[in-house]
Amino acid sequence: MAERILSPTGSRRRLSAEDRRSQIVETAAEVFIENGYQGTSLEDIAAHAGITRPLIYHYFRDKDALYLEVLTRARAALDAAIIDRVPADASPEEQLRGGIEGYFHFVRDHMHLWELLFGGGTAVAGAVAEEATRQRFETSEKIALLVSAAAPEEPALRANAYAHAISGAGEALTRWWQHHPEVSLEEIVELHMDTVWRGLGPILDSLG
C-alpha cells in the first residue's frame, strides 16, 4: 500500500470537496501501484475508496485525468525531496550530495511511488505516457537549475545535459539497488557521487 504523502487526508469526518478529491487520488495511487495502469478501472478505485464511480467523475473526467493527477503529486513529492536537502550557500559538491541524498531517501521511504513514476505502472502510450515523460524531463530541468546555480559560467545547454546524466544515473542505480538490498542508503549515495562527481566535479571546480 502506498504511503500517504500525496495529501494529508485521513480524517473520518465529513470531507470537504478538496479533501474528497485528495482521498480519491490517494486511493487511486494505491490501486495503480498494485494493479498497474492497464489493470486498473475506475470501478476498482471507487470500490477501494468506498464511493461510487459517478463521484469520481465529479472530480475527474476519466481514468487518464485521475492517473495524471497521481503522477503529478508523486512527482512533486520527489522533486521536493530532492530540493529540500540541497543546502543553500554550499559548495557544488555539497549541493549535489544533498540532492542525491534527498532522491535516495525518497526511494527508500517511498519505493512504491518511485515505481509508479519510473517502473511498470506507467502508461505505455498516448497522452498519459507523453505527460509522464514531460514530467520526468521537468525533474531533470530542476536539477539543471541547481547545476547552473553551482556553476553560473557553464553554458545552459551543457548544464541541462549534466542534469539529465545525473538523473539517468540515479534511476539506473535505483534499479541496481533493488537487486542489492544489502547496500545501505549511505553507500548508494556514495556510489552515485562517485559515478557523477568524477566527471562533473573537475568541470564545476574549474568554473568556480
Rank of each mutant, 00 (worst) to 15 (best):
D205C: 03
Q23P: 00
R73F: 11
H112W: 03
M193Y: 02
A17Y: 05
A76G: 13
L185H: 04
T174S: 13
M1P: 02
V25P: 01
S167A: 14
L116M: 14
M111G: 00
T27H: 06
T133M: 07
L200T: 02
D205W: 09
I24S: 07
E34P: 00
V183R: 05
A169S: 14
T9F: 14
Q38H: 12
L116K: 10
P8T: 02
I82C: 04
T139K: 07
I100H: 04
E186S: 15
E186N: 14
I45Q: 05
L96S: 10
V196K: 11
E18F: 03
K63W: 14
S41V: 01
G119R: 05
F60P: 01
L145S: 09
V124K: 15
A76Y: 10
H192D: 12
G201W: 10
A17C: 00
S7Y: 14
I82M: 12
D62Q: 07
T40H: 13
R85W: 01
W114Q: 10
E171K: 08
P152I: 07
L113G: 01
V196N: 08
S16N: 03
I24Y: 09
Q95M: 15
E94C: 06
T52N: 15
R134I: 05
G119D: 08
Y103R: 01
A81E: 05
R12K: 12
P152Y: 09
D194H: 03
S167P: 00
V183P: 01
E26W: 10
D64K: 06
R13I: 12
I188T: 15
V25W: 07
Y37N: 01
Y67E: 02
A77T: 09
A74V: 15
D79Y: 03
A169H: 08
R175I: 05
A88Q: 13
R12I: 08
G120V: 04
Q178A: 08
T40F: 13
Y67G: 00
I83Q: 12
A80V: 01
G199L: 13
A127R: 15
R136Y: 14
E18N: 06
Q135A: 14
E141F: 07
G199D: 06
E138N: 06
V189T: 10
A156W: 14
M193I: 12
I33K: 04
H110E: 06
G170R: 10
I82P: 02
V147C: 12
I56M: 14
A46D: 00
T122N: 12
W176P: 00
Q178C: 08
E138C: 06
W177Q: 03
